[in-house]
Nucleic acid binder design. Structure first.
Lengths: 130, 130
DNA sequence: CAGCATCCGAGGCGATACTG
DNA sequence: CAGTATCGCCTCGGATGCTG
C-alpha cells in the first residue's frame, strides 16, 4: 500500500494480536492530555505551573497524573531544583523529540483542514434538522 | 523552530485562544476509537461488523457513535445498500485520506519505539519498588 | 511553587433487549 | 446485518484542602 509517496506495506496492524503493545502505546499518546503536553514542551523545558497555564482546561490532578505517565514511558524528564521555593522542570527526552515530528504533522493537518471539517459538520447538522 | 528538517515556525499553538477550533478538532481525532477506525479503513471500505472485529474491544454502541462522529466531520462516508440483509459500507473520504499520512506516521513511530518505551517503563517501575 | 489525599458527581461506556 | 433504546455501573476527572 502506497499513499502520498509513503509506503505502508507490511506495516503492523494494531488489530493483530501480536501488536498489543503498539495498540497499548498508541493509547498512551492519543489520550486527551498527553498530546498537548508534548506539544507544549516542543520549545524547551517548562515548569509545572507554566504547563498548567499552557494546557488550557487541565486540572492540577490530571497534569500531575499525565506527567507521571509520560515520565514513566520515557517521554518526559523531571528535574527538581531544591531551591526555595522549589522549582521543577519538565522536558522532552531524545525519544519524544522524534515523536514531535509525527505529532506536529497531525497538528498541521488539523490546522489546514479545520475549515473543511467545519463545513462538513454544518452540512451534516443541517440535514439532521429536516 | 526547525526540527527534523521540518519548519514549525509560526505554527498555531493550540493553547492560543484563537485556536479553539484546532484544539477542538484535535480532540476529535485523539479520542479512544476514531484513530483506530481510520486506520482500519485505510485499505478501502469496510462493513459495520467487519469494523467491529477489526477494532478489538470496541462495543457496538461505541462503534456506532464514533462512526457517526466521523461521518459528521466529513472523515467517513456511509453507504447503504438496501439489500436483504442490509449492507452498509464505511469508507474514508478524500479529506481523511490525507489525514492518513500523519496518522500512520504516528503508528510507524510507535512501532519503531515501543521497545524503548517498554525499557523506560521497566526502569521506572523498578525504581518505584525501592 | 509543586505537589498529594480525599471526596464525589457526571457521563462514558458496556450489557442487554428489541427493530427494519 | 445493522443498527436503536434503555439501564446502570464505574471510572475518569474536577474541587477542595493540606504539606514540604
Amino acid at each position: 500500500m502506497v499513499l502520498n509517496n509513503i509506503d505502508f506495506t507490511g506495516l503492523p496492524d494494531p488489530s493483530e494480536s501480536n501488536c498489543q503493545t503498539t495498540r497499548e502505546i498508541l493509547d498512551l499518546i492519543a489520550d486527551k492530555w498527553s498530546l498537548y503536553i508534548i506539544i507544549m514542551l516542543r520549545n524547551g523545558p517548562r515548569r509545572f505551573n507554566q504547563l498548567r497555564r499552557d494546557v488550557e482546561g487541565i486540572s492540577q490532578r490530571m497534569l500531575t497524573l499525565t506527567l507521571r505517565g509520560l515520565e514513566r514511558n520515557g517521554l518526559v524528564t523531571r528535574t527538581m531544583y531544591p531551591t526555595i521555593p522549589p522549582r521543577v522542570e519538565y522536558e522532552l527526552t531524545k525519544l519524544s523529540a522524534t515523536l514531535l515530528t509525527p505529532v506536529m504533522g497531525l497538528v498541521v493537518w488539523v490546522d489546514s483542514n479545520k475549515d473543511k471539517i467545519g463545513v462538513a459538520r454544518q452540512l451534516y447538522d443541517d440535514r439532521e434538522m429536516e
